[in-house]
Design a protein around this nucleic acid. Structure first.
Lengths: 229, 229
DNA sequence: ATTATCGATACGGTATACCAGATGCCAGAC
DNA sequence: GTCTGGCATCTGGTATACCGTATCGATAAT
């Protein structure tokens, strides 16, 4: 029998409603300006169900996942709310991020190809341009893209998954603060230094610079984001 | 109305069945010797339900959480299986662990009290004794306790949560390998050095030693655990 | 007019019913 | 004996019904 002839694609409908609901909800939370509005944001389970066109069960399971990831909080017989991290929690998250990104830089040096370095350079350039244009939103996104580039180039999907969770909140914070102050300039210099260390294949230096760079953000939030809490 | 008189305890039955099921299942997975048996371990949803005395819904929600954490894998209409991490995944996990523990050591130095250092010393002593007694299981547990001590002393519950997930697999691996080789002696020395750096309040040194110590475990698994996969 | 109480309602938690697909056994053809 | 096709059955995914409780408004008592 000729198997090659009938090589159909594996029918990738495998995604369950639960997975779809999860992606949809997470996407919605990512887009939403969490720290912008003052009142707590409540999610209506049944309303979401009819919006998604599925029953409560898959939506509830998706919500359970989001709750475990720390995006939402469920109060029995009260409602489901999008969580607003406290300042301390954000600092903690960014600190963990610093550790992970530092390790990512280390891994990057160990098994980085030149083309990956090229990609990073590209991300950096885009970042710089975005800053020059003073489009804050683009700047913020490009900033995150830069960080994600390092993480992804490290080849560790585990680090990637973990940092993605944090970036959602960091992006939200950025969107809320907007007042970047002098962090933008400093950031650019630090990013340049990081690329330099990566290009030089200096694992220790790269890790230290990445770590300190991100810890700098933690300090920034610690000092200037008193409006949280 | 005198409210103090009737101050009964807050009726800590607030835990939902879902949470109970989650704890129970996680506990079961932790205890089980994942890498010991050759065949895949399957979980029967309905059997578990009747064992726990609840319906499928809370059990399924608990399983969804465990699946997201990477402990189990659900194949539609096939079954639910306890995942056996590949060697690469384990190495990745341990690498992330190294980054997190390194950061924990750094935080430890920054805000460690002397009493916390005492606790760490105690953990180390227990660890040493366990090794001397050559009770492998105790040795392994004490080893993990040592690592957890640093993490908990860092004060970051986020790091604690993340590493806990990994320790379950690392413990399972330890149980399966058993042949400790010369890692035990080396471990002890490295632990001693770590405590020394922590006591000296040298953040950089402590972080580096912790990181390299755990990365050493990653290398060990990489080299000597070919039986995985 | 204010407050207390009761009930309607809404929400999350749980149980259960149903569905579609996968497995495995068994009968029947060769 | 081997292989194939179909049926019984099992399993996870989904929908839905039900329950207890918190919220909130209406009504009644003061």
């Amino acid at each position: 029998m000729n198997r090659e002839r009938f090589a159909v694609e594996p029918l990738e409908q495998g995604m369950s409603f639960k997975a779809k609901a999860y992606q949809s909800l997470r996407q919605a939370i990512t887009q939403m300006n969490i720290y912008g509005q003052s009142s707590e944001i409540r999610l209506d389970e049944r309303r979401l169900c009819e919006a998604l066109g599925v029953s409560r069960t898959p939506v509830r399971e998706a919500m359970a996942l989001l709750e475990q990831e720390g995006f939402i909080r469920s109060q029995p017989r009260r409602g489901i709310f999008v969580v607003r991290k406290t300042k301390a929690e954000l600092v903690e998250m960014i600190t963990v991020c610093a550790a992970l990104e530092g390790m990512a830089a280390r891994l990057f040096v160990e098994n980085a190809t030149t083309e990956k370095l090229e990609l990073l350079h590209a991300a950096f350039d885009k970042y710089t341009k975005a800053e020059l244009a003073e489009h804050v939103a683009e700047y913020s996104d490009a900033n995150i893209v830069f960080h994600q580039s390092i993480v992804q180039a490290s080849g560790s999907s585990l680090i990637s998954d973990l940092t993605d969770r944090f970036f959602i909140h960091m992006r939200a914070i950025r969107r809320a603060t907007m007042g970047l102050g002098d962090r933008a300039d400093q950031s650019i210099h630090e990013h340049r230094d990081i690329i330099e260390a990566l290009a030089a294949r200096d694992a220790d230096l790269a890790e230290r610079r990445v770590r300190e760079h991100t810890l700098g953000l933690a300090q920034y939030v610690e000092r200037h984001c008193a409006f949280l809490d």
